[in-house]
Amino acid sequence: MNRNFFVRSTLAALLLTVGVALAKDQAAKSAGTAKEVVVKSLAIGSPAPMRGVKMKSVDGTEVSLEKAAGKNGTLVVFTCNHCPWAKMWQTRVAAIGNAALESGIGVVAINSNDPADYPEDEYAPMQERAKLLGFKFPYVVDATSSVAKAFGATRTPEAFLFDAKGKLVYHGAVDDNAREEAAVKEKWLNDAVQAVATGKGVTVAETKALGCTIKYRESNKKTS
C-alpha cells in the first residue's frame, strides 16, 4: 500500500515537473512574455535617433528630423488620423506645434501606423487632416515604422521635445485631459515648449496618457 502510494506520488510529481516545464517552455517561446515585448522609449537626455531619415510630408517634400530642427529645439509628435485620442488632442497639437514654430522650435508630426490596418491613415487623408487643422509644420509618413521603433514610441499621440542642444527634455502626453480642453489642469507639452523656447529647464519631463497603440507596419511589427 505504502509502496504503491510512493510510486504514484513519485510518478505524479515527475509528470507534474514535465508538464510545468513544458508550459514554461511554451511560454518562453511565446511572444507574450514580458522580456520580448516591453518597449523602452528614448531616455530623457538622449539625442533624437534617425535624424537623417527622410520621410514624405503631406506637401510632397521629403523631411528629416535633422532638416526640421529649429535653433531652439525640436518637437516630434507621433500621431495619426484614426485614433480617437489623437483626434481629441489634434487641435491642441496643431496650436502648440504652430506656436512652437514661431518660437524657433522645429516641429514634425509623424504617422507611423500601418494604413493597411486603418485606411484613415493613408497619405491622402493625412493631407486633408493637416489642411483642416492648419498644420504649419510637416506631417510625415514613417514608411517602415522604424522611426517610431527607434524612439520607442508606442502610442498616439506621444510627444518628444528636444532642446537647443538636441537632448530630450520632455516625453509624454499633451496634457491631462484629452476630452475637455477647458478642464485641463496640467498643460505639460505646452509648458515644456515654453520652457525650451526661452532656454529654461522643463519642470515635468515625463508623463503618460491613454492612447492608441501604434500599428507598426507588417515588416516591422513588435506586437501582433
Partner: peptide, 21 residues
C-alpha cells in the same frame, strides 16, 4: 507577462499557462 497591443489566442494561452505554472 505584460504587453501592449492586440494578441491572439495563442499568445493569451501561453501567458496564462506560464502564470498558472
Amino acid at each position: 507577462g505584460f504587453w501592449e497591443g492586440a494578441a491572439d489566442e495563442n499568445r493569451f494561452e501561453h501567458a496564462v499557462i506560464a502564470a498558472i505554472a
